[in-house]
């Protein structure tokens, strides 16, 4: 079987009639961590939303294959049950719905989909106990309503905790570092790193290189104007950090020594 977990080919997508992705190509294998970087508005979060199947994101051209299947054919909840997890940039509050109850409902929905028996609350508590400690999630947090009144750091830790419990095959972390102080960032990174495994692929979407000091990626892609403008190894992120994103607009990809250029010219897409 093809070892590629995710294959994105020539992906074009629009939101409210506005074209955001313009022929994006990306291939992620099991066991790899890919970082997607790029300036605001380059389409990073749109890519995450399209893969997760968010309503309102229209794919106008191209293809997304997940484990050899046409991902775009699946409903969002089917994608989740097939092992795709999105750690939200802005985790959503659901007043009155207990955090533990919510996560158990999610896990059981996925287990049911896979034909596994559902867990009762005792079994579930046993399962989550160890994972709670790693992310410093207090009992109090589990007894509150989903994300309601959580601090920024608590919300992000809760996302990674959910990921640890749901054990996805493909995890997409959308700006998980935004709004975190350095201690919270380390905690989240530690939680993520523990979940790296040969069977799991991760896509880490971030604006800053800072997160990648703690979650060291196998590949780094720079998104600009809705397509991959450059790809490289972890060093690419460092270079970006030094030089900023402004060079993208000037078509200065080649200035990045050692970086491979994307399939298209960045200058052509930079106006988007």
């Amino acid at each position: 079987m093809d070892k590629a977990m995710l294959k994105v080919r020539n992906l074009h997508a629009s939101v409210e009639g506005k074209q955001i992705l313009n022929g994006l190509d990306l291939e992620v294998n099991a066991g790899e961590v890919h970082a997607i970087m790029g300036p605001n508005g380059s389409g990073k979060s749109t890519l995450a939303s399209v893969i997760a199947g968010r309503e309102g994101y229209e794919v106008t051209d191209g293809q997304v294959l997940y484990r050899g299947r046409d991902l775009l054919e699946l409903e969002p909840e089917e994608r989740a049950c097939e092992g795709i997890f999105l750690a939200f940039q802005y985790p959503v509050e659901i007043p009155g719905v207990n955090n533990t109850y919510f996560l158990r409902a999610a896990l059981n929905a996925q287990r049911k989909y896979r034909g596994e028996p559902e867990l009762d609350s005792m079994q579930f508590l046993k399962l989550i106990r160890g994972k709670l400690e790693i992310l410093h999630i207090s009992d109090d947090l589990m007894h509150r309503a989903v994300n309601e009144g959580f601090s920024g750091g608590e919300k992000k830790r809760n996302e990674i905790f959910q990921m640890a419990v749901l054990e996805p095959a493909l995890a997409i972390l959308d700006e998980t570092d935004s709004g975190l102080d350095i201690d919270a960032l380390k905690l989240v990174a530690e939680g993520v790193n523990r979940q790296r495994s040969p069977d799991r692929a991760m896509i880490v979407v971030t604006h800053y290189q800072r997160l990648l000091e703690y979650i060291v990626p196998d590949r780094v892609h720079v998104l600009s104007g809705g397509r991959i403008a450059a790809s490289g190894d972890a060093d690419l992120a460092l270079k970006l950090e030094e030089e900023g994103y402004s060079w993208l607009a000037e078509g200065g990809i080649q200035a990045l020594e050692g970086a491979e250029t994307g399939s298209g010219g960045a200058g052509a897409a930079a106006g988007a």
């Binding site: 997760a52 199947g53 968010r54 309503e55 309102g56 409903e75 969002p76 909840e77 994608r79 989740a80 049950c81 997890f85 999105l86 939200f88 985790p91 959503v92 509050e93 659901i94 919510f102 996560l103 409902a105 999610a106 896990l107 929905a109 996925q110 989909y113 959910q162 749901l166």
Partner: peptide, 17 residues
Amino acid sequence: GEDQLFYCLQRGISEED
């Protein structure tokens, strides 16, 4: 909330649930 709904769906929970 469409956001709330999508958050649940993304965790594998059906729309009705």
